[in-house]
Design a protein around this nucleic acid. Sequence first.
DNA 1: GATTGACTTGGAGTGGACTCCAAGTTATAT
DNA 2: ATATAACTTGGAGTCCACTCCAAGTCAATC
Lengths: 140, 140
Amino acid sequence: MKEEPVFTIKQTAELTGVSEDTIRYYEKIALLPRAERKDNGHRIYRQDNLETIRLIVCLKKTGMPLEEMRPFLNVSVDADPAQYPELVEQLKSHRAHIAAQIASLQQVVDFIDTKLGDGRLRQPCSAGSETPKGRTFIYK
Amino acid sequence: MKEEPVFTIKQTAELTGVSEDTIRYYEKIALLPRAERKDNGHRIYRQDNLETIRLIVCLKKTGMPLEEMRPFLNVSVDADPAQYPELVEQLKSHRAHIAAQIASLQQVVDFIDTKLGDGRLRQPCSAGSETPKGRTFIYK
DNA sequence: GATTGACTTGGAGTGGACTCCAAGTTATAT
DNA sequence: ATATAACTTGGAGTCCACTCCAAGTCAATC
């Protein structure tokens, strides 16, 4: 079998783009499991750990708060999602949330394009999710 | 000419989905101009003000910090953007940022779909913007 | 054997964006 | 006249996600 490479926290920080402090913070709040230690107490990370950290980064980009990530991170990479019906629900709900976000963002892009184009008409977002009246409005 | 309707802060909060406290907070940090007052000192808002608030909500959805919104809000609705070359640059840069965000989000959606689909393969994001090495990685 | 560097820990501090509060004013309803 | 409601102000408090710090350990180098 092959030797699996391990990384120091510094290397891990470099490879994931997440600062050492932040990695320790994630461990402190148990978003990451307690990392393995060498004899001298130093943390070591494996490929698998890096990928979990990258998944956090990924989910953060979608605006998910750290607390909400727990269930996602707890499921192992190759687990069958059908065994976690609750998680499936959360995934679906988050998917919908992201889809709404994308729509919102797209409208801002449109707004910017319009603004950059003829510069007279505003046609901004309000993908009407949180807004009490889910109305579309058009600036004139 | 027509009577332009005005709104109380409460109505404005209802119409925009932003709390009264938050509206006052935006005024406090001068993200919104000091609102007009009635004789009794109560704030009044016009259609135009509501639209500015809605624009804030809109930009917030794209993850823009309040401080960065100032230049966008200062330009009047029907100003010619070509007169504000700096703003045009910011708009373009923000547009790129949002486009990257959309790509990121789309990848999370794909990840979720894959996860919900066969549940074995992870193919998450990393639209390689902040990541030091802009590599695409695939979970196996 | 003293220094340097990479790490450890617990805890304190920061910045952004609210959110809440107390004390006061004014208008309307009973 | 008094209670209720809708506002005003300045300032304090909260929550999240870091970010920084001091004190200590350990291993290798000069």
